[in-house]
């Protein structure tokens, strides 16, 4: 470092970093599979959460089903769908 460093530090963002990588015009290795399972050390795999809290997981899947039904009915009904027993809705 006494002879002068070869390092330049700057404030940046991931997309500006990505822009510089793009400018480098390299060929990158190809990946075709996924990044499962995740393990951050020997004998510790983060695969328990695939099934933990089964009731909540089912509740979310079912809710997404209901959401899709609501969206479709709202699209079919038009503005009338906003009027409900408790007043007008604010969906957009």
């Amino acid at each position: 470092q006494a002879n002068g460093s070869r390092v330049h530090v700057l404030y940046s963002t991931p997309s500006c970093y990505l822009w510089e990588l793009h400018q480098a015009n390299l060929s990158w290795s190809l990946k075709m599979d996924d990044f499962f399972p995740y393990s951050d050390g020997p004998h510790q795999f983060w695969t328990g959460f695939f099934t933990s809290r089964p009731a909540l997981k089912r509740y979310e899947r079912l809710s997404n089903n209901f959401l899709q039904i609501c969206s479709q009915l709202e699209a079919l009904a038009g503005p009338a769908a906003r009027d409900g027993p408790y007043g007008p809705g604010d969906s957009s």
Binding site: R6, V7, H8, V9, L10, Y11, S12, T13, C16, E20
Partner: peptide, 14 residues
């Protein structure tokens, strides 16, 4: 994007 130095190792602090 901020200017960088092509002749140096650029460290992007995010």
């Amino acid at each position: 994007c901020p200017p960088t130095r092509p002749d140096l190792l650029n460290v992007h602090l995010v």
